[in-house]
């Protein structure tokens, strides 16, 4: 009566061997759990390093001051709109999640035309999101005007700058103290673009002088920006985590778009019609919603808090 041999049918798409779910969907869920652990690790590292900077007395970057560029508003009218663009990006990703779930729903009804339409719209949403991310990275790396401070050779006497000097001098990024009521912010650390930290108190107090009198020293300020070693926004860990976390998320979006293109071509060819079900749409849909889910957390902890 009961056969205890390996049930080969269980591995076939469309069968539901356990927990009323197919083998493929179960494995996608387990993959997503492990991927969620990876993202959790990255976001918790962000939290720990940010709390550390705070208890050390260093100011963390203020997202409202960092992410101010919105396409067209900035280029045409020079308007700075804090967080508006990130809000739009979040909305685009949520919309692409909606079109994805509509594709899954159309798959349940085996409506090939509709699946095709919704998957194509999801691909468009994903590609738009990636383009937005490219724009944001560009402005993050280039930086704002007045981001870095130029120091002359005289001011740096006796300091080993490790070949960072240019014709203008040496560009440095000040790391400021936290804002306390009734106390002016001061420069606690100075880093060069190559990441080397200048500890000479005379240099730090000179940079403090320049930063607290921007009108007098306006010609000393130059374009800032960010790299993996130093950045104009705050402690180096801020830019490192920004590149790593949004980059890792962007990689996931890119993989999702690739999977969706394959899905779209197969739907067009009629592969799933022949197979009798659209389960592949559900599995790729799970992945795509997960990418949206991660962004919800990145949006809150990187941009809002």
């Amino acid at each position: 009566m009961a056969e205890v041999a390996v049930d080969k049918k269980a591995l076939i798409e469309g069968e539901r061997p356990m927990l009323n779910a197919s083998y493929g969907k179960l494995m996608m869920w387990f993959f997503l759990v492990s991927d969620a652990f990876t993202f959790s690790g990255l976001l918790i590292a962000y939290g720990a390093l940010r709390v550390r900077a705070g208890s050390q007395g260093l100011a963390w970057a203020d997202p409202e001051a960092v992410f101010t560029h919105t396409p067209l508003l900035y280029e045409l009218f020079h308007i700075e709109a804090p967080l508006v663009f990130v809000g739009i990006m979040t909305f685009i990703l949520i919309l692409s999640s909606v079109t994805m779930v509509l594709a899954v729903e159309a798959g349940h009804r085996k409506s090939r035309k509709e699946v095709q339409k919704w998957v194509l719209l999801t691909i468009l949403g994903g590609a738009t999101f990636l383009s937005c991310q490219a724009y944001e990275w560009y402005h993050f790396i280039i930086g704002t005007h007045n981001g870095a401070v130029i120091l002359t050779a005289d001011e740096l006497a006796g300091v080993n700058v490790g070949g960072a000097e240019t014709a203008e001098g040496v560009a440095v990024f000040p790391v400021m103290s936290r804002e306390e009521p009734g106390q002016p912010q001061e420069v606690l650390e100075v880093r060069m673009r190559n990441g080397i930290r200048i500890t000479n108190p005379a240099v730090i107090s000179r940079v403090n002088d320049i930063v607290s009198n921007p009108d007098q020293y306006h010609e000393r300020f130059t374009d800032g920006g960010a790299n993996m070693k130093a950045n104009e926004y705050g402690p180096p860990a801020f830019a490192n985590l920004f590149f790593f976390v949004t980059g890792f998320h962007g990689t996931h979006v890119f993989s999702g778009v690739v999977l969706l293109v394959i899905l779209f071509l197969n739907v067009k060819k009629g592969t799933y019609e022949k197979r009798g079900h659209y389960e592949m749409t559900e599995k790729i849909g799970l992945y795509w919603h997960f990418v949206d889910l991660v962004w919800v957390f990145v949006f809150t902890f990187f941009y809002l808090v």
């Binding site: 918790i44 939290g47 720990a48 390093l49 940010r50 709390v51 550390r52 900077a53 705070g54 208890s55 050390q56």
Partner: peptide
């Protein structure tokens, strides 16, 4: 987070 505070 607790450890980050102590570390700082």
């Amino acid at each position: 987070v607790v450890d980050g505070d102590y570390w700082g």
